[in-house]
Design a protein around this nucleic acid. Structure first.
Lengths: 331, 331
DNA sequence: TTGTAAGCGTTATCAC
DNA sequence: GTGATAACGCTTACAA
């Protein structure tokens, strides 16, 4: 409705055919240097911008990638998205972003809307989707990367780490350190990965005969104030707790602030452990014991896998970027 | 290359013309109820997904909005982006996201790439751009919203608040509280809004005869560890400092943690003030004095303005969503 | 090296 | 209400 300049306009001025201009634009070799230079100058002059709607339609393939993430407020996903855009931009792919708010129906609806753009690939979070979502993705037969969790069978490819192993390793470490009375703060409904970790932690502890006190914080966002408040609640409910595991480092920092403010000695009286490995945790008086995860790396690998798959390079189905148990001073 | 089902396929099965199917898909009233129902059933059955590449080309108008933001790691922008997507999704517009890393050249390059998709509108950060960026946007004659800063003349519309006023108000408040020896921690190069605030703060203080000590932290990210380390440096350099202003709340929390760890009493010995109003600041032993800004709201208003402009509703050029001085216990 | 012609899958327009 | 036809701006496949 605006950019009225088309290939034809350029061609007219340059006194060549549209095809020649098209070739110049796409960097096709089969154009004489003289012609190419002249056409390029004219393109600059009249400010021609290629129309990829038309291009992709004709080519029946776009350079857009559908990206569906659960949340942007959660720092983890912004870092993942940063990694994704970094890689995609290099190859001139544009991410089309949708935020699902951990709602599988919304994921489905957004995906459906995005599929109309015939994206070249799709990246989405977790391995759990509605049947319809899965069907749409399968039918599209484009590269699909499911990120964060690798504990299951991906539609096409998955990139992440094993949340269950991570939770178990943390549990074992804490038990090894002698903690016995566990508390948990910060789970939020519909966060698949967090739920999986919580379940794994609880299962591990139960098998070994230890309990896990978790106040009903399902609706509480696992951020700093939530962690602080949750800690207060938990300690009121179970004053003997000797270690609290938080669903993420933000909540753990909140717990740390509660302890500092209330004079609860850490880890002497109460130990604290987080999950995610935000840089913030390193700044506490005692470095936070946590599971460091590689969010940025997950994004980058997801992006790279998309590009590889699009260029026909074979890609491994499941990529485990791992995690790292950080043995801090807080537990 | 995949979804071979087109309008034609549906039309064939339904025994109507493509136009009728097209009307049904777009919810055009001028189709008999019977035909509509039948066509819709068939669409469901054979799993037809409209191709918006073709649609937008014919219609010469897309439902994509180009969104260019400086960074996703900075929580502020993820919140803004969340607000934007929320509004756009309601009207079935998809955001195409680019991350500029505060680099105007990159902004220009990304914009150029995105313009090929003939976005219906564009949202980008700040009022400073390359000449080329401005020219491209002007030439496109689509709604353009510049967010965060409103201190200047927008290309089309702007949504944000006055960073200079905010910085001045904070300065005046702190001076009113009796602080005299100011320190500053956390500015990062190329962050236009942060730079503007720093400059305004410094100017205000100088005019009133007070100095401002700022170690060379330009390359240091204004996050929690950066704030903690910067505070240490600053106090080594100027031990008499009685108040430190941080470029954002993350850095301020870092400063707070430094004080807690080193036994520096706040605000007795040293006062602390942040900027942005993250929830985290409320969890410190003393609520953080800060300037609360409305990131989510900025995003929502930006999105709403885009939708309004696209629907022909008149929109005000400059929207000031304001800010709020939070008088906490830390200063 | 360059050009011609036939799509790509929609929608606008105007008949019927 | 419904349908035929011409765009939309580009690329593919050939031809020259």
């Amino acid at each position: 409705m605006t950019d009225r300049t088309t290939l034809k306009d350029v061609a007219l001025v340059a006194n060549v055919s549209q095809m020649t201009v098209s070739r110049v634009v796409r960097g096709d070799r089969r154009v004489s240097v003289r012609t190419r230079d002249r056409v390029q100058r004219i393109i600059e002059q009249i400010g021609y911008v290629p129309n990829k709607l038309a291009g992709s339609l004709a080519h029946s393939r776009s350079n857009q990638v559908a990206v569906l993430i659960p949340s942007l407020v959660n720092n983890v996903y912004s870092q993942v998205l940063t990694g994704i855009t970094e890689m995609l931009e290099r190859a001139d792919y544009n991410p089309v972003v949708g935020v699902t708010n951990n709602d599988l129906r919304k994921e489905e609806a957004l995906l459906e809307s995005m599929m109309s753009w015939r994206p070249a690939a799709a990246i989405l979070a977790n391995l759990t989707h509605t049947d319809r979502t899965t069907r749409i993705l399968r039918a599209a037969s484009i590269p699909v990367v499911e990120i964060m969790d690798i504990n299951g069978v991906p539609i096409d490819m998955s990139v992440g780490f094993n949340h269950i192993h991570a939770a178990q390793e943390l549990a074992d470490y804490l038990i090894g350190r002698g903690y016995r009375r566990f508390g948990y703060v910060g789970w939020i409904r519909n966060e698949f990965a967090a739920s999986a970790r919580y379940a794994a932690l609880r299962a591990r502890l139960e098998r070994l005969g230890y309990g896990l006190v978790a106040p009903d914080l399902f609706k509480m966002p696992p951020d700093v104030p939530g962690g602080k408040y949750g800690t207060k609640l938990l300690l009121e409910q179970a004053p003997n707790t000797d270690v609290i595991v938080y669903s993420n480092d933000m909540a753990a920092v909140g717990g740390a602030l509660y302890c500092i403010e209330s004079g609860v000695s850490v880890p002497g009286k109460l130990a604290i452990a987080g999950f995610t490995g935000l840089r913030m945790g390193e700044s506490l008086p005692w470095p936070l014991t946590t599971i460091r995860t590689f969010r940025h790396e997950i994004g980058r690998v997801a992006g790279r896998n998309v590009l590889k798959a699009l260029s026909g390079t074979p890609v491994q189905k499941v990529t485990d970027v791992g995690y790292e148990l950080v043995k801090g001073g807080s537990a």
